[in-house]
Structures are given as structure tokens and as C-alpha cells.
Amino acid sequence: MGEAIVVTSGKGGVGKTTTTGNIGTALALMEKKVCLIDTDIGLRNLDVVMGLENRIIYDIVDVIKGSCKLKQALIKDKRFDYLALLPAAQTSDKTALTPEGMKKIIAELKQEYDYIIIDCPAGIEQGFQNAIAGADRAIVVTTPEKSSVRDADRIVGLLEQEEMDPPNLVINRIRSHMMKSGEMLDIDEIVQVLSIDLIGIVVDDEAVIKASNDGEPVALKSNSKASVAYRNIARRILGENVPLQSLEDEKGVLQRLKKFIGMRT
């Protein structure tokens, strides 16, 4: 029996889709069976980020309407067998998707998969209600900006009214030098206001933009900081105790040596 996790934020453009894709990929790398669901009808792009756009034949609305079987709509990832994607509809009627329909699909997927990661559309309207309907827990994504934190707070308030575990927090697009200089909200401040458990921090990394343009989730590339961050989140989801990534930039050998012998760096 699998677990359904919804990735949501309220505000648009904070990295829900990227987070969904990468957490899913990272979990699949750890040999968990993962199914990603895109619920952003009309503005789908999880398939683009995953590089699976040209394989779409059926979508989630087709499944709900009964035009195809759930298995037919699922797209197996080209890189590994553990990952599948249920894409959103691009042109179909938005109103076809209902919370009941979502619950049914998720219940069916749970038989087969260990984790079902749901990409939620921005906003708090019907699309949001659909996305959270079948979820067992939620991950709230925010960036260190006031407007984003405000929307995340609103979302946490709405999630608290649902019957699910308290949501977890991912702080995305951290710029360490701005946080250090106080130009950006710092992590403690955000966690204190939202008062939910932090499950990961992801630095603002150019590799993420490049990877999503290439249709390759950054989590597959072992060298970048964001990649490590997403894989850490996946390990925390599995219940491992992983310390938060340091925001400091990697120091050179000389600086490390200086520090070691007690010189000021």
C-alpha cells in the first residue's frame, strides 16, 4: 500500500513542478516505485520537466471520463522502470476533474506504487481541492520571499482543515549570500512563522534550470547542490535522519588548510 504526497505552494512559480519531478526521481533512484501525477489541467508541464512530453497519448481527464484505462495513460519513464507519470490534460474540460475522481485514481495507484507524488496547480481554487483530495500528506514549497511565505501560510491553514498529517516544508531557491546579509528571509524565520517541520532546503542552482530545459531531472546529476538537496528530501521522506545541507560554499583546499591551522579566512 503506497503513500500519496501532494506538493503544493499557493503561489505560482516557486518550484512545485521541479520539486515534484525531482523528489519523484530521487525516490525512484532509491528503488521505490513512484508515480507522478500532474493535476495542473490546461497548464501541464511536469511532462516537459521530465522529458516525457512526446510520449503522451492519454491523460488524467481521459482516465476520469473512462476513455481509457489508468494503465494506458501512465507513461513509463525512459530512464528507469520505477518511475511513471500520469500527465494532465492540456485541452480538455477542466471541470471533469473532481476530488472523488482523484481519490479513485490514487486508491488504484496505491496498490501498485510505493509513492504517488501529486503536482498541485497554483492557487486555492478547485484545482487545489482536487490535488489534495486523495493525499495522505503534503509538502509545502516556499521561497524565501514574503509573498511566497504568506501564501504558504494560507495553504498550511487550509491543509490543517483536511484529514491529513501536518504538512512538511521545503524552502526552495535559497541564495545563501542574500540570506546571510539579511536581504532574504532566513530559514529560521520562515520555519518559525509557518510552524511546520522542515523537510529540506534547496539552493538556487543554475543546474536546475539547465536540467529542466533538457528534460532531465537535476536529481539524476550527482554533482550539483540542488541534486543532493532533492535526494536528501527523498531520504527524509523514507524516514532517514539526514542533516540539513550547509549553505556555505565549498571552500578551497587552501582555505580549509588555513582554517585548520587557525588562520582567519
Binding site: 501564501d151 501560510d153 498550511v156 491553514g157 490543517e160
Partner: peptide
């Protein structure tokens, strides 16, 4: 009466 409430009042609530 004093009504005691123990929760966080979040944005929009």
C-alpha cells in the same frame, strides 16, 4: 468569559 484558543491563526484565517 475568557475563551481560550490554542492554535496558529494563519494568513487568511
Amino acid at each position: 468569559e475568557i475563551k481560550a484558543v490554542n492554535r496558529t491563526i494563519r494568513s487568511g484565517q
